[in-house]
Amino acid sequence: MALVSMKQNQGELLKDFVSRFNMEALSIENFDHNVAMVAFQNALRPGPFAQSLAKTPPSTFTDILGRATKYINAEEVMQAKRAEHVEKKDKKKHPEERRRDDRREKHRPRWDSGGFTPLNAPRAEILATIEGKDYLKKPQPMKAPSDKRNRSKYCRFHRDHGHDTEECHQLKEEIQELINRGFLRSYVAKTAGEVPVMKDEKSSAVRLKRSRNVDPISFSDSDLPGYPTRNDPLVITAELGKWELRRILVDPGSSSEILYRQAFLGMGYEMTQLRAAKVPLVGFDGEAVYSEGIIQLPLTVGRGSRTSRVMLDILVADVPSAYNMILGRSGLNALRAIPSTYHMMMKFPTDRGTGEVWGDLRLARECYMASIGITKDKEAGSQKDADPPK
Score class of each variant (00 low, 15 high):
218 S>K: 14
200 D>H: 02
254 S>H: 08
143 K>T: 15
239 E>D: 13
245 L>N: 05
130 I>N: 04
213 N>A: 11
237 T>W: 00
248 I>C: 05
172 K>G: 05
143 K>E: 09
134 D>L: 06
225 P>N: 11
142 M>R: 13
251 D>L: 08
225 P>T: 01
201 E>Q: 14
211 S>G: 04
147 D>V: 10
262 Q>P: 03
148 K>P: 01
231 N>L: 06
144 A>F: 01
162 G>L: 09
212 R>Q: 13
185 R>A: 10
184 L>E: 08
225 P>A: 11
221 D>F: 06
191 T>V: 14
209 K>S: 06
257 E>P: 02
197 V>K: 12
157 F>D: 05
216 P>L: 08
216 P>D: 09
165 T>P: 06
201 E>V: 14
177 E>F: 15
169 H>C: 04
129 T>D: 13
132 G>Y: 02
139 P>R: 03
193 G>D: 02
195 V>E: 09
176 Q>G: 15
133 K>C: 10
257 E>M: 14
251 D>H: 04
184 L>P: 10
230 R>D: 12
149 R>I: 00
208 L>Y: 11
161 H>I: 10
186 S>R: 10
132 G>F: 03
213 N>P: 06
262 Q>T: 15
196 P>Q: 04
159 R>W: 02
224 L>Y: 10
138 K>F: 03
149 R>C: 08
261 R>C: 13
248 I>W: 00
220 S>D: 15
178 L>C: 03
123 R>M: 15
251 D>R: 05
189 A>D: 11
187 Y>Q: 04
249 L>H: 06
261 R>F: 14
236 I>R: 08
210 R>H: 09
207 R>P: 07
133 K>Q: 03
158 H>A: 05
254 S>G: 09
133 K>E: 07
234 L>G: 09
223 D>Q: 02
255 S>G: 07
170 Q>I: 15
226 G>V: 08
132 G>Q: 01
147 D>I: 11
249 L>M: 10
198 M>G: 12
213 N>E: 13
210 R>I: 04
137 K>Q: 12
213 N>G: 06
220 S>T: 11
232 D>H: 09
126 I>N: 03
155 C>H: 04
189 A>T: 02
255 S>E: 08
208 L>F: 15
241 G>H: 08
177 E>V: 10
200 D>F: 10
177 E>A: 14
152 S>P: 03
137 K>W: 02
207 R>L: 12
156 R>L: 09
156 R>D: 06
136 L>G: 01
196 P>F: 06
232 D>M: 06
142 M>A: 02
218 S>G: 09
214 V>C: 04
243 W>L: 08
219 F>V: 08
164 D>P: 05
177 E>S: 07
196 P>T: 03
158 H>W: 01
166 E>H: 07
158 H>Y: 09
153 K>R: 11
222 S>V: 14
260 Y>Q: 06
256 S>L: 12
175 I>G: 03
135 Y>H: 00
252 P>A: 04
139 P>K: 01
138 K>P: 02
246 R>I: 10
134 D>E: 10
226 G>Q: 12
247 R>D: 08
243 W>H: 14
128 A>S: 12
233 P>E: 08
148 K>L: 03
211 S>C: 11
205 A>K: 14
256 S>F: 07
246 R>T: 07
